[in-house]
Design a protein around this nucleic acid. Sequence first.
DNA 1: GATTTCGGTCGAGATCATCCAGCATTTTAC
DNA 2: GTAAAATGCTGGATGATCTCGACCGAAATC
Lengths: 159, 159
Amino acid sequence: MLDDLDRNLLEILVKDARTSLKELAAQVGLSSPSVSERLRRLEERGVIRAFTVEIDPLALGYTLQAIVRIRPLPGKLHIVQKLIEEIPEFGECDKVTGDDCFVARLFVRSIGDLDGILDRIADKAETSTAIIKAQPIRRRPPPLGAASPRDRATALQAS
Amino acid sequence: MLDDLDRNLLEILVKDARTSLKELAAQVGLSSPSVSERLRRLEERGVIRAFTVEIDPLALGYTLQAIVRIRPLPGKLHIVQKLIEEIPEFGECDKVTGDDCFVARLFVRSIGDLDGILDRIADKAETSTAIIKAQPIRRRPPPLGAASPRDRATALQAS
DNA sequence: GATTTCGGTCGAGATCATCCAGCATTTTAC
DNA sequence: GTAAAATGCTGGATGATCTCGACCGAAATC
């Protein structure tokens, strides 16, 4: 589906999404129209979901981040999910297996704000909150390399 | 620190990091050299951490994501952290307060791979894994608007 | 009140992206 | 097996965009 050239382009763009077509072309050894066409197709196919910018939350005044596990009370699942989606301070939310139905990331400017937001959910779900002290790994994409032969073997074996 | 123009630029770039200077300039009502200078300064100050591309993990064969909570055994904290950082399938990791020391996101191509990776940590930490079933909110930045007067009041009160 | 600093505009020249014609290679169809 | 069609690439012309220097005005500094 993706060839080496595509992966190569993605790798460069992960580091700097504003790299010019000309520069991309030079780095992968193609002409710029070709690169342009490849990017167009990668976007079209949904491989590239978006070109975006990573902003330091601190610069916006968000001095605190927390991971919140959320277990909606019986019958409240949909209301809780809607509520979470509508609170913009939630910067990420995954619906997971297990007792905790949702795991979400919360950006806040103060402990007071944290309390205020959790209060809005308190009557519809149980929550447990962990304050983030450090970020050993900040968001990064999974490895871009092709599936290794070993991986493929494993996959086959499993099926 | 950030004025309305900066926030406006960031907002546009979050949606499309490849927007041309000319287009940015038109949208915020400045000349392109001014926009160029502002972006340079935003990067310099670390407000903009990076221009990047958001890739669909599925396109790379990662059909499964999991949230893993990791509690290193006594004395193993640093080894575990190093191990996590070195495994590229970890796409995010936060060090948090509470019993679980780390909360991490794992991209894998199969359940077998998940097992393989967790095995590598098993003798150094307790883990509990939740498979991601859906993503109600995909990574997004915190609200870009200026701190509201109410927020400021709260912050002052607290200090 | 003069001066410096900061952030802005404008215009020219350089750089870059896009369009198009043409070509090679692979796939499809018969 | 071969002709036709489709695919993906290149190179060059053209038009759009970026960058750089010169200059300007408002606000802070002395």
